[in-house]
Design a protein around this nucleic acid. Sequence first.
DNA 1: TTCATTTCTTAACATATGTGAATTTCTGAG
DNA 2: CTCAGAAATTCACATATGTTAAGAAATGAA
Lengths: 196, 196
Amino acid sequence: MNKSISLEYKIIKEDISKYISLSDDEFDYYFGLLKAKKFARSENLLQSGDVCKEAYFIQSGCIRYYNLVDGEEQTGQFFFEGSWYSDYDSFLFEKPTTQTIQALEETTVAVLSKAALQKLYKEVPKFERFGRLMAENAFMGLRKYTESLTHISAEERYKLLIKSRPKVMQRVPQQYIASYLGIRPQSLSRIRKNLE
Amino acid sequence: MNKSISLEYKIIKEDISKYISLSDDEFDYYFGLLKAKKFARSENLLQSGDVCKEAYFIQSGCIRYYNLVDGEEQTGQFFFEGSWYSDYDSFLFEKPTTQTIQALEETTVAVLSKAALQKLYKEVPKFERFGRLMAENAFMGLRKYTESLTHISAEERYKLLIKSRPKVMQRVPQQYIASYLGIRPQSLSRIRKNLE
DNA sequence: TTCATTTCTTAACATATGTGAATTTCTGAG
DNA sequence: CTCAGAAATTCACATATGTTAAGAAATGAA
């Protein structure tokens, strides 16, 4: 067994505890349904055209998702250790995703398959609550981001990002930050220069 | 009893059926927890500073929500008959909302209070599933919108809106559409002129 | 360490949206 | 129906971001 890609019992227990209270047996059942996967830097967890059949809990590392539109990568979001991510739309409705999920660093994830989640909903109904809270959290995170988008300039969004998510600044290449902000790398350079 | 503000049994039954299957008794229990409210054009369902303690199902009419930032109304979304809306963030965490929810037409809603929803989660656990699906739907609707935001011009967003949501064009004043698109009314006028 | 490749920066010009002000059109209360 | 207030339009000029191209800096593989 490759220790470096094993599931981290403690971290996963801490995470699920944020959502629901489980007995030891219930937790062990949940834990037993998870798989570990490891991705190299730049490797894709999911590719455009695939059906997303898994949700990912990042144990270590960093990922982004993007959509390829007219040959341009439009970065939607960055996620770091301790976060869940899946393409809900594809995951729930089993339709081909338009997203690519890419590891930006060497990244270890716990994988919860759709089949496993459905087992959980059935065998341990309080996981419906887990699903609800996950979706609610995802919604609120997205809404906060969305509201900032239309109404403030790229420069303001950049300043906000520096302030609110320094990890992104430290660990994500600038071209992807530009893509996330919805501007060109050249424009981000210009903005950075103006702020000096 | 004022017939014009009564709950419409059939519409509400159809709506909940999209999410979960209920026995007649379960539905009646749910239905009994709802209240009807009617709002005049321009009236607010919720005001900035209030705690949002209710979710609204629009039976007829049309609402928008907006945030007031630096004296400017930033419209987040429009909702029509058949949609649910609530400020999740305020509703879930009982904190003061920054949103104002405003009726754009005379609007009749079914009100599901937080207390009622918690009763439902407790008495009819399959409502956890309802909550999950509502949050998932809300998330996906928002994500679709968000992805269009950063990466295309206001003109493209406007054309997309015409195509995908003609109701908005027909029923929402232009100044609010501009605010939703993140531009000034003057800019929307210019865009409309260019498209002629 | 070195070199090829990728990423970042800079600059000049193009384009889209903002701003402020004036005008026209629409709307609803009376 | 009328008219005052609100909403939409138009215009001239200001500003932010895009585009293209070139060069500088950083990075990773050998």
